[in-house]
Write a protein that binds this DNA or RNA. Structure first.
Lengths: 215, 215, 215, 215
DNA sequence: CATGAATGAGGTTTCATTCAT
DNA sequence: TATGAATGAAACCTCATTCAT
């Protein structure tokens, strides 16, 4: 799903390389929450990783590669969600499955806000390849919800005009929790936000207009 | 509404200053759609404005000031919308008013996508003051919809738990039309997107569950 | 003869560009007599040119381009020699012509020793293209002497086994005046070196074994 | 003849030190044929030696010391030539002795071209001490030929104006076989080059103008 | 003894900003 | 007023050298 670019390294110890790159991804993410990628110096990133600028270049080929590391690391955080996709699909009640998936996904998003923020704010600094990686990943998420919605339509629980658009909306809104956090954080908690999202979606797609009140 | 910072200039002809700054804002916006602010050189911006780098500095104090110009210019684009706010409020039917306001606002957003993109992608490059300006502006937009929703609640047309959250959602979704355009543009037109938005919102807030189908 | 590479510049004033590049070539040559190209920093070269490091990069694309400038400028120094080639060929006495050509060329070499030193010592730092330029130039010089020798053979003044080798030797020996200057400078003057060269060559190629004593 | 600088080492096993330094000299020479010393990293040299960068530093004090090793090793290659010098001097026929010496020396040069190339191209990167070592060595070679020429003059076989210059010319021309190999290699073999050299020299210095044809 | 990961000084290069014209 | 050449600070990146293993 995620095409991992082959990044230059001077080391042959692939374990160490993996460990250091993880370290770089984590450190970089920490700094990049506050400052734009371009405005952040390699020195700053190195310091946040507990490395010297020279060391960082033993594990990457150029500053740009740090974007790849951050993306890879961020996406890895969602692996459990993707692995659970089949579980949602096997649930008898599509409504319950959707509720569960939304809640799980939104909690994932919330627990690694730096990643989504990075994706939305640094898109313009990314190479076409990096952007492609990102869009592929996004589509994968949308697809999980799309399949859930499809199943609900098939079972008659949902009535939906354009399944893709609704799936997109669910993903959009999760991003908004992060991107517009300065607004939302003042007015509601994550739980409230999730509840509202579920209500909005279910009201819009449920055949039986009362069902969404039971959850 | 928007606190215009006082930017240094060497000129005394305030008309010329205004004209040149408009020119800069327009030119800069054109370049900044494609490249991040930090990755864009003053030379590039100057060329896009049809000026020399030296001339630009007769009308700004530093590169950062260009952000202010772009923001001011972008916000000015929404002036008609704000001026029409009272019209919406005076409409008898809150549902119709809301529909109208959403449609008007979304069209405004669509016609100057570069501005919203700039706001969301360059937030990290902005100074606290600039960010404040931006948030103030955002709140103003949300407020327009909040007042519309309040009125609908008062008249009994709407039943809303948290008016702020719904208003925020309307504004959020307009931003998503721009920020996730790479997804949406493939799957629906602006008109379809607006229709879906109106349906989602009305289904969620209307007392009379059928009303939103009539629009 | 010399393929001038197109080097990046930020200026459009081609006169200024030419002037500044000349300035760079001269300054660089002055520093590069003493230190290897790689061991010389751009800052040092800039200072020797009376420019700032930033300014130098308005007229070149990379440090490597300085090699081109030095080569171009060095070769230009030999333009008068090439232009005089026809004069030598039109002289009735091939022996006199050869003597004259050798003397002229060796004096040229002596008056810009830095250039030949640069060519022989930096060859390994040059790109294939630059090396090609250099070899082309070298061949041009050899060719001048080759044609003179050919003419002497045709007129019966010279008897030569391999004209190319003799021409090459003349050029080689001129380089040696520079490359082994630490030896030669202690033991002879340029005039003596030229005389010896002429004697060596004429003794080796003259049909009439006495002729070279008359010169 | 060659003052071997004392190079730092961490080892006490002087046999091992000698062996490793030989290894370094050979490996370095192999790499330095293609790339300038400054442009070659210690890592590359280490790899060419089959060592790690760390190991190299157990046997040298700094990268610069590698120049010393290469010089020492290269000069050692000429030891047999120097040892044979007395043999040449004891030959009855100076002309034959000179012919033999030239041929032997030129073959030596040809069989280790990398060394001469290194000497001529890296001179600017050498410290004064290293350059001194090199010039001393060069003078030693010139001296061998000088003594041969002196003897020929004494015996009446040669008539020479400036013995030093002729000796220098013999050595110069051997260097040219390497330094201008890109030209010569296309036009003649080593044997032809040696023959031409012997002819040039003998024609220039022989009392009996016919003698050189007999060889 | 051998290794190669880590370091950080210093090199090349870019670019916001100034200022003479 | 407008220009664009010049500046130099600071960024990215390399690599000689050290040192724990």
């Amino acid at each position: 799903m995620v095409a991992k670019a082959s990044i230059r390294t001077y080391s042959v110890d692939s374990d160490l390389v993996a460990r250091r790159r993880q370290q770089i991804a984590v450190g970089a993410a920490r700094v990049l929450v506050k400052k734009a990628f371009d405005a952040t110096t390699v020195r700053e990133i190195a310091k946040a990783c507990g490395m010297s600028p020279g060391t960082i270049y033993h594990y990457i080929g150029s500053k740009e590669d740090i974007i790849d590391l951050v993306l890879s690391h961020g996406e890895a955080h969602y692996k459990p969600f993707f692995e659970k996709a089949d579980v949602y699909l096997k649930m008898l009640n599509a409504t319950q499955a959707l509720k569960q998936a939304i809640e799980d996904y939104y909690r994932k998003v919330d627990s690694r806000q730096d990643f989504l923020l990075f994706c939305y704010q640094e898109a313009k600094n990314m190479s076409p390849r990096q952007l492609g990686t990102l869009l592929d990943w996004d589509r994968s998420v949308v697809d999980v919800f799309r399949r859930l919605l499809d199943k609900g339509c098939a079972s008659g629980e949902f009535v939906i005009d354009d399944v893709r658009l609704v799936a997109n909306r669910i993903v959009s809104d999760s991003a908004m929790w992060v991107v517009r956090r300065w607004f939302l954080r003042k007015h509601c908690t994550l739980e409230e936000y999730i509840d509202q999202e579920i209500q909005f979606i279910l009201r819009a797609i449920s055949r039986d207009k009362g069902v969404y009140n039971e959850g």
